[in-house]
Deep mutational scan, measured.
Amino acid sequence: SELMNSSKLIRMLEEDGWRLVRVTGSAHHFKHPKKPGLVTVPHPKKDLPIGTVKSIQKSAGL
């Protein structure tokens, strides 16, 4: 199965306009000026399962 580095996923979010608002432990929480909701990324993780990545991307509207 495909894995993604959390840094790469965070870069994709930031390029889309998401900004880090809070860190709780290894959970990084992002908000967007125009899009609704809060997106949480486990970080640092070298090997996020593709299912997790897809669900984060979906929440972020990517």
Rank of each mutant, 00 (worst) to 15 (best):
L48H: 01
V21W: 13
L13D: 00
G51V: 10
T40H: 10
W18A: 00
S6W: 05
E15Y: 08
H28G: 04
L62S: 03
R11L: 11
G51L: 11
V39M: 04
A27I: 11
M4N: 08
L3R: 12
G37M: 04
L20K: 06
L13A: 01
K31R: 14
G17F: 03
V41N: 00
A27E: 13
G25D: 14
H43L: 02
L3K: 13
R11N: 10
A27Y: 15
G17I: 00
L3C: 12
K58M: 12
S26P: 07
H32N: 05
L20F: 04
Q57A: 09
E14S: 07
G61K: 05
R11Q: 13
S59I: 13
G61Q: 07
S1L: 10
M4C: 11
M12I: 12
G17P: 00
V39D: 00
K46E: 15
D16A: 07
W18C: 00
E15A: 11
S7N: 09
P33I: 06
V53G: 02
R19I: 12
D47A: 14
K34M: 10
V39P: 02
K58F: 07
L13R: 00
S55K: 13
P42Y: 05
V39E: 01
L48C: 02
S7W: 15
E15G: 07
E2F: 09
L38D: 07
L13T: 00
G61R: 05
S26H: 10
G25E: 14
K35H: 04
S6C: 03
S1R: 05
P44S: 06
P33H: 09
R19W: 08
G51W: 12
V39Y: 01
G37Q: 06
A27H: 15
I56K: 01
K34D: 10
H28S: 06
G37H: 06
L48W: 02
V21I: 11
H32W: 00
Q57E: 08
E14M: 11
M4Q: 12
S55G: 09
W18E: 00
I10H: 02
K8L: 12
V41C: 04
L62V: 06
A60T: 03
K8G: 10
D16W: 04
S59D: 12
P42D: 06
M12G: 04
V21G: 03
M4T: 12
D47Y: 15
G51T: 13
I10D: 01
S1K: 07
Q57K: 11
S6I: 03
P36S: 11
L3Y: 11
S26W: 13
K34S: 10
E2I: 08
K58I: 13
L13W: 01
I56S: 01
L20Y: 03
L20G: 02
M4L: 08
G17H: 04
A27T: 10
W18I: 00
E2S: 10
E15P: 00
A60G: 04
S59N: 12
G51D: 15
R19N: 08
L38W: 12
S6N: 02
H43E: 02
T52R: 07
S6D: 01
N5S: 15
L48S: 01
R11V: 08
P33M: 08
T52N: 04
P42I: 05
K31N: 09
H28K: 06
K46P: 15
K58R: 13
T52F: 14
V39W: 01
V23K: 13
P49Y: 05
G61Y: 03
W18K: 00
S59H: 11
I50F: 10
S7Q: 10
K54D: 09
E15N: 10
K58Y: 07
I10E: 02
I10S: 02
K45R: 14
K34C: 13
V41D: 00
K45V: 15
S6Y: 04
E14A: 08
S7V: 09
I50G: 07
R22Q: 09
S59M: 13
S26L: 14
P33Q: 08
H43Q: 02
E15Q: 11
T24D: 13
K58S: 09
K8Y: 15
P33E: 08
I56L: 03
P49K: 07
A27G: 07
W18L: 00
K35Y: 03
R11A: 14
K45C: 14
R22P: 01
M4F: 11
I10L: 05
K34Q: 11
L62Y: 02
P49D: 15
H43D: 04
V39Q: 03
L38Q: 08
L13V: 05
V23P: 03
H43G: 03
L20R: 09
K46Q: 15
M4K: 07
K58P: 02
T24W: 10
V41Q: 00
M12F: 07
M12V: 09
L3H: 11
P49V: 04
H29D: 08
V53N: 02
H32Y: 01
K54W: 05
G51I: 09
E14K: 11
K45S: 07
E14G: 06
V41A: 01
M12H: 06
V23I: 14
P44C: 05
S55F: 11
L48R: 01
E14T: 09
E15F: 08
K35R: 06
L38F: 10
T52H: 06
A60D: 02
V21R: 05
K8N: 14
T52V: 15
V53I: 11
T40F: 10
P44E: 03
P33G: 09
L13F: 01
L3G: 14
H28W: 12
F30I: 00
G17W: 02
A60F: 01
R22F: 11
K34H: 12
H32D: 01
T40I: 12
K58C: 12
V21E: 07
Q57W: 14
V39S: 01
K54N: 08
H29S: 14
G37T: 05
K31M: 12
G61N: 06
R22K: 14
K46N: 15
S59T: 12
P33C: 10
G25R: 15
I10Y: 02
P36Y: 09
K34A: 10
K45T: 07
Q57N: 05
V23L: 06
M12C: 07
P42Q: 06
L20P: 05
V21L: 09
E2C: 12
P42S: 05
S6F: 04
P36V: 08
I10W: 02
S55M: 12
T52L: 15
K46I: 13
L20H: 03
K31F: 07
D16K: 04
N5A: 13
I56V: 07
V23N: 06
S7E: 10
G51A: 14
I10P: 00
G37W: 05
S26N: 13
V53T: 05
G25V: 13
T40R: 14
L62R: 03
S7H: 15
V53L: 06
T40V: 11
S59A: 15
K31Y: 08
S6A: 05
L13Y: 01
V53Y: 04
T24C: 12
G37V: 03
K8R: 14
S26F: 13
T52Y: 08
R19H: 07
K58W: 06
H32Q: 01
P49L: 05
A60M: 04
N5L: 08
D16N: 07
V21C: 10
S55A: 15
H28C: 05
R19V: 12
P44A: 04
G37C: 06
E2W: 07
N5K: 06
T24M: 09
T40Y: 13
M4Y: 10
K45Q: 10
S1G: 14
P49C: 06
R22L: 11
K34W: 13
Q57S: 07
L38P: 04
G37F: 04
G61S: 05
E15T: 09
G51C: 12
S59L: 15
I56R: 01
G25T: 14
L9Y: 02
V21N: 05
H43A: 03
K34G: 07
K31G: 07
M12P: 00
P36Q: 11
S26M: 13
K34L: 10
F30V: 00
E14F: 08
K45P: 04
H28V: 13
L62P: 02
R22V: 07
K31S: 10
K31W: 08
W18N: 00
T40D: 05
H32G: 00
S7I: 09
H28P: 01
K35N: 03
E2A: 09
I56N: 02
K45G: 06
W18Y: 02
Q57H: 07
V21S: 08
L20A: 07
G25Q: 14
G37E: 05
L9I: 09
K8C: 15
K8Q: 14
T24V: 12
V41I: 06
E15R: 09
K54S: 09
I50L: 13
W18Q: 00
K8M: 15
K54M: 07
L9K: 01
R19L: 10
A27P: 01
G25K: 14
R11C: 10
A60Y: 01
L38T: 13
M4A: 08
K35G: 02
L62A: 04
P44M: 04
Q57I: 15
R11I: 09
K58Q: 15
G61P: 01
